[in-house]
Nucleic acid binder design. Structure first.
Lengths: 131, 131
DNA sequence: CTAACTGTATTATAAAACTAATACACTTTT
DNA sequence: AAAAGTGTATTAGTTTTATAATACAGTTAG
């Protein structure tokens, strides 16, 4: 079951979008697999200290995007084929990277400098992710 | 004068935050210099097709951060010393890059792959920025 | 000086995001 | 079968974001 263990609530954008992002990235990473059960709306609500309606909004949008499937009474399940998975991968990788590149450009950072910085920061936070 | 020529209104987050981001990145890039005049609130409002109050909110927050200085009646001016400039640079570069690195990690992308992707996307959009 | 422009302030409205408290029917578990 | 858990729906209220219409006093340019 998708437990949202390593999910961290940012102070950035809307919560329901953060949840959608988390699921999509998990699918791309392979840590969230097809057929897997989602944690229930109420349980996630309690876990994050967030209103159930906010979770419902996220889950509802995930269903509209054809990423999860809900039948009344039972837990929602992930339902993505390989095509969708690849779509999401391409879309997210490009989108996030393009945003970063544009940010670096607007700050007048050269390609070499930007890549070097990214590599440095990558190595810094290296110990935390590999458990 | 800061004309906001190359400013593009995203559909992402709040408009007033996009304006603040634009100014900060411009300062880091050196395209926005100390002492320079800001475009007036009304003029920018008309240029972006956005309510004057939204611009005022952005300018007000920029002043609270000590980035611009406003005297009633005259145009607001940028007022940042080298220390502030360096603070903003460090903060923005780190913040944006860390966000990208974390995104790539959460998608299970390796360091080499991520950096290669960034380099490819950097070269793609290369013709547009150098005029 | 005068007219135009500027920053600032006020009040009102609306949509989006989030919280709160329920309620009901369906599924799973015991 | 009964209880607990689940998806779904409704109504109400708050905060944030953005719009709209003015108004006033200080600065600048003609």
């Amino acid at each position: 079951m998708i437990s949202f263990e390593d999910f961290i609530l940012e102070e950035d954008g809307p919560i329901y979008l953060q949840i959608i992002r988390y699921v999509k990235r998990g699918i791309v990473a392979g840590s969230i697999r097809n057929g897997e059960e989602m944690i229930s709306r109420r349980a996630l609500s309690a876990l994050l200290g967030v209103n159930p309606n906010t979770i419902q909004k996220a889950y509802h949008l995930l269903e509209e995007e054809g990423i999860i499937r809900s039948r009344s009474g039972a837990k929602s399940c992930v339902e993505v084929d390989e095509g969708q998975k690849e779509e999401i991968r391409q879309s997210l990788l490009r989108q996030e990277t393009l945003a970063w590149v544009q940010a670096m450009r607007q700050m007048g950072t050269g390609r070499e400098d930007a890549l070097a910085l990214a590599e440095r920061i990558w190595k810094e936070g290296g110990g935390k992710e590999e458990r």
